[in-house]
Design a protein around this nucleic acid. Structure first.
Lengths: 163, 163
DNA sequence: GTTCGTGCAAATCTTTTGCAGTTTC
DNA sequence: GAAACTGCAAAAGATTTGCACGAAC
């Protein structure tokens, strides 16, 4: 199962959110607490800002819980998404990536490692449709994706010119 | 604006681009001109701003050319994308959508008809990463997706409150 | 005890690939 | 005529679904 678009291994920004346990979050949202759900959500909370494919989660967690079916990962992610704890985004190959979604944020996609990071842009307020488009569309939300290089990839790829 | 058929057929904005024929575009890009390619590109040029799935194109065009395999549609779209005539974007279900890409633009997604439109936002210049993020990421491009309702859906869905 | 969740495997759906036969240049 | 395209069918992946068993409340 070769994933072209690996989710990020590094946390994006230190998003300041109170660290409740997975169990607390599950109960808060009225979901039953099962070992599988706790395991999945725990891992995602530990690395806020990272985005995982269902398969990455399955690979990462099966060692901790041999009874963890891939189908269950999908079920759990769908539930977590339904209650708003997790967001789904789509990589360039169309496969789904999941990350915790406790505070509003936008995304940065690193073209080097093909990882997704959470970011919080500024200057969103002045973003609007052109006058022409404004009559055609009723905008409710805006999603911004920055593309470029994360620090690690920028460092390892670009010698930044002759010394 | 001379569009009927489905909701998804409406043009986004009147993007002012010289209308070359599909054949001209193919030759310009150094691609061989086959009936299949001409047909696909012709249809896409006729409805600039619309985005099609491979299957929609197949369904729409097979009546005009019975010898048109779905696999060929994928081949053609990949070629057109390679030479920069077509862009690929991913719907919320991860399936690929294709549209002509002659001028830079961003996108509007209508949550009603679930169609994608090309738009040209203003105020992009003031969009930037937060100070925190700026040291972490080297931004090269930005993609903006507006979400909301297109005019048709806004009109037909919202009676604008209780009387 | 009832309801909900999980494991497993099969099914579905989209996209890619391999190859022989045609078409374009 | 050579190189590039296409049709067809099979393959590859990712995600969903159906159902019986087991766990949470």
């Amino acid at each position: 199962m070769v994933r072209k678009e690996l989710a990020s291994l590094q946390p994006a920004s230190p998003i300041p959110t109170k660290q409740f346990s997975a169990e607390t979050w599950l109960r808060t949202k009225g979901l039953r607490v099962t070992p599988q759900r706790r395991l999945v959500l725990d891992r995602m909370l530990q690395q806020m800002g990272r985005h995982w494919s269902a398969d990455e989660l399955h690979e990462a967690l099966r060692s901790q819980l041999s009874e963890l079916a891939r189908g269950t990962i999908y079920n759990i992610l769908a539930e977590l998404r339904r209650v708003g704890l997790v967001e789904e985004l789509r990589g360039h190959d169309g496969s789904a990536l999941y990350g915790v979604h406790l505070v509003p944020h936008h995304h940065f996609f690193c073209e080097g490692c093909r990882c997704w990071f959470d970011v919080t842009p500024v200057g969103l307020g002045s973003l609007a449709l052109s006058a022409d488009d404004r009559g055609r569309f009723d905008v409710r939300t805006v999603a911004v994706v920055f593309h470029g290089r994360c620090a690690d990839c920028a460092r390892s790829e670009a010698p930044s010119g002759p010394p």
